[in-house]
């Protein structure tokens, strides 16, 4: 049994916060490069070039990719062979977030009181999802989610008799409503099934899968592909100025649900989709 300390956890989280905010995920980086070579719109191409350059500059200058360094969502997946029984995990993770955001010169975007919009927080608390699995070790993933795109999230509770067409229309309309405002080209995280809250969590988890890897279920992978194609024909384009690059990826995650319902959550990510993981 590997005994983990609070320091090991907070230090890992701190590093992940910096890594995620400074280094564009390789799958997103190559999707941008691919989009740049394929894009036909002139203004769209220029914008994609800026985005490719942005990732290079962020890395070289050690400056955050985007000034909105997000609200960190931290997934802690505790597997076998690790002992954390004596630790205050929530405290350890939040400590890591605070240290990482401070050390990385990232932005403090958290207000403690959501209504009064006051309270000088020190980068935390973050949102934490704890899960337990059968794998070995503890996996920690940090997903700093910017709010320009988080604000465009949509949840719909469909009837169980809804058709695939209804679901597609809902997803496409969510992207159209976001339009130019949430920094396209987008990456879509879509959660289907579970309960209302769980569909939202699934949509976030979907964003963690590399965008060049389709869903392992054939029918779901087909839906991802269809949506990807259809949305890229919408003409929204980079920054909403037209072009054939509106989404860089469509990731769906499904889960069993109730006979009376079909929750679908669309969580839009801007092109700066950030996440980083480690296994302890």
């Amino acid at each position: 049994m590997k005994k983990l300390t609070e320091k090991m956890i907070s230090e890992s989280v701190a590093r992940l916060c910096i890594d995620a905010n400074l280094h564009l995920r390789p799958d997103v980086d190559s999707a941008l490069a691919r989009a740049l070579s394929k894009e036909s719109g002139i203004q769209a191409k220029k914008i994609l070039k800026q985005l490719v350059d942005n990732a290079r500059i962020a890395k070289a200058d050690r400056v955050a990719l985007c000034q909105d360094t997000g609200m960190p969502v931290v997934f802690v997946d505790i597997g076998r062979g690790v002992d954390v029984s004596s630790l205050d995990m929530t405290r350890a993770v939040n400590k890591g977030v605070r240290e990482g955001y401070k050390r990385g010169y990232l932005r403090n975007s958290i207000v403690l009181d959501p209504l009064a919009r006051e309270g000088a927080s020190k980068f935390s608390p973050c949102v934490i999802h704890f899960t337990f699995g059968r794998h070995k070790g503890m996996r920690i993933t940090v997903l700093p989610k910017g709010f320009g795109c988080e604000n465009k999230t949509q949840l719909k509770m469909f009837n169980p008799t809804a058709t695939i067409g209804d679901i597609k229309d809902f997803i496409i309309s969510a992207v159209q409503q976001a339009g130019p405002d949430a920094c396209p080209p987008y990456i879509l995280g879509i959660g289907i099934g579970g309960t209302a809250d769980y569909a939202c969590q699934l949509s976030k988890e979907a964003l963690l899968r590399p965008i060049d890897k389709p869903n392992p279920l054939g029918a779901v992978a087909k839906l991802e592909k269809e949506l990807y194609k259809k949305i890229n024909q919408s003409g929204i384009g980079p920054m909403g100025l037209g072009g054939n690059t509106t989404v860089l990826g469509v990731n769906i995650k499904t889960f069993p649900t109730h006979i009376a319902g079909l929750p679908v959550c669309v969580n839009i990510s801007c092109h700066v989709l950030r996440s980083a993981s480690v296994i302890l």
Binding site: L51, N54, A55, I57, A58, D61, V63, A64, Q67, C183
Partner: peptide, 13 residues
């Protein structure tokens, strides 16, 4: 004016 969203490191230059 529009500036490119998500190009914060680029614009910092």
């Amino acid at each position: 004016f529009l500036a490119t969203g998500g190009a914060g490191a680029y614009l910092a230059k």
